[in-house]
Simulated scan of single mutants.
Amino acid sequence: MSQAVMTEKAVMTLEASGLTRRFGDRVAIEDVSFHVAPGETYGLLGPNGAGKTTTIRVVCGLLAPDAGEVTVAGLPVAATATEAKARIGYVPQEVSLYPDLTARENLRFFGRLYRLRGQELRDRVEEVLELIGLADRGDDRVESYSGGMKRRLNIGASLLHRPELLVLDEPTVGVDPQSRHAIMESIANLGTAGMAVLYTTHYMEEAERLCDRVGVIDHGHLVAEGTRRELVARVGEKDRITLSATGSLALFAEACRRIEGIEQVDTADSSVHLIATDGRRRLAQVLAAATVTDTSVRSVEVEEPDLEAVFLHLTGTALRE
């Protein structure tokens, strides 16, 4: 996960303000606002049909909003805003490649669309093939690729012109675990290198791993946003600490109850279960209490609330429904 440094005066790569889009009588998104800083990976997390794809199509200028505005690197995004769009790399859910061409031929074609020519184009094609891990298959036709390899090449095509903002619409759907891991590694490296990334997914574990901040979208509304810890704090979820131990568990449990931030203590068989605020910060005091009460701790497990628990709390529905 990248570590974006943001201040109040920082220039955001992406600013989306009050985005609303209707399809007939159906409101797909309403008053959606968020920003993405240089080097930050921002995740739009929500179930299928929540409004994620509509949001990013508006961000990329592929759909005009009924209300609101988008700027990329300070430039307004609209259907005819070629300068702003040139700062964006867009990776749609559907693979947009020519199956009867090789990977190199596909990249050269898309590179020319981005007005790359000559040695610059040739160098950039090779750089991208290395980045996505397909240099050894660059002369193979895309029709011979696995689904995961096609998606990696799809991402590569969007990187040829070195965009300031990379927008990915659920890029790991339907791929094998190995390709999924490779895609996520590539995206993490891009954020570290300073590129702003807008990433939509309905997989909680991807957002946990990749995103500096997350916006939870449901029924077209951005219902919450922040870091994982901020979102968890907002809904009041607590950490759970389980200790496997022997000795005077009753005395140990009583000592734990006196530790600030420990809100509940239970014992069962050879285990002590704690519910705590910011559990990892309490561990030193908990282990000190074990020493004082002559309790031998064999193992400690800290279970922190995740984004799926947050989403369920905010929307009342499971993440993948």
Rank of each mutant, 00 (worst) to 15 (best):
F252V: 14
I187W: 00
F252G: 14
S248H: 13
R234N: 05
M204G: 05
V167D: 11
R229E: 13
Y203H: 11
H181T: 04
S179Q: 07
E260R: 00
L249H: 15
A255D: 07
A193C: 01
N189Q: 02
L274S: 08
E205H: 08
T242C: 01
Q178H: 11
Q178T: 07
A288L: 05
I241N: 04
T246E: 13
E254A: 14
L287E: 10
G226D: 07
A193G: 07
D294K: 03
A290T: 11
I259S: 12
E237Y: 02
R228T: 04
L159E: 03
R258H: 15
G215A: 07
C256L: 14
L168Q: 00
R234G: 08
H161M: 03
S248G: 15
L287Y: 14
V167F: 09
A284D: 05
D269N: 05
D212R: 05
L159G: 00
A284S: 05
L243Q: 06
R282A: 06
A290I: 11
A250P: 08
A253F: 11
D294C: 01
N189K: 06
T246H: 13
M204E: 11
V232L: 02
E254N: 14
A268T: 13
E260W: 01
S270H: 14
R280G: 09
R213W: 09
Q285Y: 05
G247R: 10
A193H: 06
A289S: 11
